[in-house]
Design a protein around this nucleic acid. Structure first.
Length: 211
DNA sequence: GACCAGGTCCTTG
DNA sequence: CAAGGACATGGT
């Protein structure tokens, strides 16, 4: 608890890897990851899964289908994720970006990570976390995701930094391998869900006392 | 019934 | 630039 921030990051990565090992996380094709990344904004993943199921039943679970769909039918399918009106607009904006700027996901996949990230951040409703989730889980790029859980856990571990700083720290510490990026983020979120209660956060106690 | 969830945008100070 | 509110449904 007295090391540099980057060594603290490395410690988190090491400890959680030992604790969880490999866990499957965010399976699904690129279309599904893009859509899920928007739907999960400020929303429980279980509700996102339901919405993805409804989208599939209505043949709407793809970027190209959303591009063609009416707002009403999208809203109906994703209502259970909350913020359904604004999320429908965001999905439409994202689909429009992918189709009109790149001609589809397959072509988009041929471009470098930084270019894609800049583009995604220009889409209304796509912020840093959503963009990085799309890059990391949808396009298998080494772009580390800092979400609320990660931010919180880093605070527990004695790294009270801004999200942008944390992203740089993890990217400095991790090997440049997309699989490791995905796995590490998954570990952190699983750990947070397991140990961060509402009233008292057990993770803060565990991570400070011991490695 | 209050409180929170794997954010982002817009408005204020 | 930091802080606060809006967006909305579903679970505890």
């Amino acid at each position: 608890m007295s090391g540099s921030s980057s060594s603290e990051c490395a410690r988190i990565v090491r400890v959680l890897e030992g604790h969880y090992g490999h866990i499957p996380w965010w399976p699904g094709d690129t279309d599904e990851v893009l859509i899920g990344a928007v739907l999960t904004q400020q929303t429980r993943w279980e509700n996102v899964v339901r919405a993805l199921g409804l989208l599939k039943e209505n043949s709407l679970c793809s970027v190209s289908a959303l591009y063609d769909a009416d707002h009403g039918e999208i809203e109906r399918a994703i209502r259970c994720t909350g913020f359904y009106r604004v999320k429908t607009k965001r999905l439409k904006a994202l689909a429009t970006f992918v189709i009109e700027e790149y001609g589809g996901l397959a072509l988009m996949a041929g471009y470098p990570t930084e270019l894609l990230r800049e583009g995604l951040l220009r889409v209304s409703g796509i912020g840093e976390e959503t963009a990085d989730s799309i890059l990391c889980y949808g396009f298998h790029r080494s772009s580390f995701v800092i979400d609320a859980y990660t931010h919180h856990i880093c605070g527990c571990a004695g790294i009270p930094e801004q999200k942008s700083r944390l992203k740089a720290l993890f990217e400095e510490v991790l090997p440049s391998d997309p699989g490791t990026y995905r796995q590490t983020h998954a570990h952190i979120v699983e750990y947070a869900k397991e140990y961060c209660g509402k009233k008292r956060c057990e993770a803060c106690i565990l991570m400070n006392s011991n490695g």
